[in-house]
Amino acid sequence: MIHPTAEHYLVLSGILFSIGLFGLFVRRHILIMLLCLELMLNAANLALITASSVHGQTDGQIVSFFVMVIAAVEVTIGLAIAVLLFKEKNTVDTEQMTSLKG
């Protein structure tokens, strides 16, 4: 059995972040994009906690709590926006949402 080291955790965090970013860019469904954002935030949390345990300090863990709170808030607002957008545009596809086009 392989004992996971800090490197493993950081690589996992990088992979999760990349998946989130990739999903954010390629998916057009607004809920999926919000989920991808969550994924990226949790990847960042994982990196923070890893760094915290490597250095033996609690700073990273404290920051990760902040991130979770912010993520919760962000999901709340994000979902609210998504619902309103759906009401307004009758779609959840971001390709249809181009009213900011210059």
């Binding site: 954010l24 860019f25 390629v26 971001t94 390709e95 949402m97 181009t98 900011l100 086009k101 210059g102």
Partner: peptide, 10 residues
């Protein structure tokens, strides 16, 4: 420059 402002969030 306007071409960049295509309104797509992605």
């Amino acid at each position: 420059v306007r071409k960049m402002q295509n309104g797509w969030i992605q």
